[in-house]
Write a protein that binds this DNA or RNA. Structure first.
Lengths: 247, 247
DNA sequence: CGACCTTTTGATATTTATCAAGTAGCGTGG
DNA sequence: CCACGCTACTTGATAAATATCAAAAGGTCG
């Protein structure tokens, strides 16, 4: 469905996202669609941008999943965020020139590159788009705060359930969930690095959630079998996602 | 020093901060200084803004310290950030109308309130200021990510040392540190809620840092006795603070 | 068919939380 | 100026959650 509509309009996921952030005029939408793009593909496990890099282009995720992460002193990894199509995971490099984290692909990924000067002109000539992207940055921060709460104050089982609820809503928001099912390419190592847990412990929690009939995993897709149950286990309230522009 | 210069110019801390974010023209600075303000004072432990509120004004912290926080399902608190004078701790409510967290004073606090419509006009008429505030939002996010790393992947001792290094640089950046000393009004409960630790454990770590001669605390001020040592213990690299506008 | 990742399981070790008191500091009112 | 009461700090003992180590079992892809 989405794929068919998007033919020849690679930025459709971005536009969809912008519209979800707030009303976009015809002129603004046209300006976005006429951005000069470089399309690229990456295999899974590729570092697109490294900490300390100074990118000269911004990227828009078109398909697949990637994450932002940092490596701490003893070599451990903390994943800071996961990204779904439509996201601009390194938008910050437009205004903060040195990267304080890396960007890694988790699946095969398609993305569009746009030079920073072009992006800068876009937001200068279309202030409304600037506000929407600023709002996106703020929502980004809201997710970080919620993740901090999970990692700092929730038990392992709650953390895992909470993250699954979040991912489901974010996939659904960009039209990539079907019914109660979403793409699920994360390894348990990724989950552990995102949630501040060891792989072994993630494994035990996932097993228990499956045993309890709350979720099911098959062929790279995750199905939520009991959504109220999962939300209850995960102490989940979606307000922090700010999915409705009016709030 | 600062206090004397600031007489009758309450927004001096904000201007100082904006200039630290990047060059500010005379006209832009004048626009900031002529903002219509409501000055207010709060005692310690006061909730200035609550989760789910819809503020109609933005606030600028002039003196004292406050924090953003959330309460999770079982009643535990996670502090997301600490704020020093010059910060606009609820800037996000300008673009994201419903609060996803609360704002709490930790000391007696002076702050300036500015109506949202006035702020909106300011950034519309002075796009440069908008970019600087957007950049501030991005730095905010960078701190959240670093805190996530601490909470998720660093041991208690490293976390505490890391936070102390951060606070020192941020105080120094707004001219509130003297030599190796900074104001220190945080209770160990606050530290625990910020770092995802129990009070008892924070207490033990603080004791060990004092015993090791790395820090000293006296009359609400903290002195770093061995800065390289504290940075080493805390796995601290200041790049994530983005203190130099050029990067 | 293998090589390589990922998942799974069991056993054990560590870190950190919790519980329970006791102590010290500090502001307030007599 | 001192006593009182509150809060924050400190300490010890024990418990719980989670990490680590080691190894086997399953999948997947060339």
């Amino acid at each position: 469905m989405a794929a068919a509509d998007d033919n020849g309009r690679p930025l459709a996921p971005l536009l969809r996202k912008l519209i979800a952030l707030g009303p976009v005029s015809q002129a603004d939408a046209a300006a976005v669609e006429s951005l000069p793009l470089t399309l690229r593909e990456y295999p899974p496990g590729q570092e697109i941008v490294r900490e300390r890099d100074r990118p000269t282009q911004g990227c828009i995720l078109l398909s697949g999943m990637c994450c932002r992460f940092k490596i701490v002193g003893d070599g451990a990894r903390q994943i800071n965020s996961f990204h779904v199509p439509g996201d601009m995971p390194d938008l910050q490099s437009l205004l903060l020139h040195q990267m304080d984290h890396g960007l890694l692909t988790l699946t095969r990924v398609r993305l569009a590159l746009v030079p920073h000067p072009t992006l800068m002109q876009l937001v200068e000539n279309h202030p409304r788009l600037g506000f929407l992207l600023w709002r996106d940055t703020l929502i980004d921060g809201s997710l970080f705060r919620e993740w901090m709460c999970s990692i700092g104050r929730r038990t392992a089982r709650v953390r895992v359930a909470h993250l699954l609820c979040e991912l489901f809503l974010r996939y659904r928001n960009v039209g990539l969930a079907e019914d109660m099912t979403m793409p699920f390419h994360l390894t348990q190592t990724h989950l552990g690095d995102a949630l501040g847990l060891s792989v072994v412990h993630v494994n035990r929690v996932m097993k228990s959630l499956r045993r309890d009939g709350v979720i099911g995993i098959a062929s790279r897709r995750l199905t939520i079998l009991d959504r109220p149950g999962l939300a209850r286990i995960g102490d989940f309230d979606d307000a922090y996602l700010h999915l409705t522009p009016g709030s």
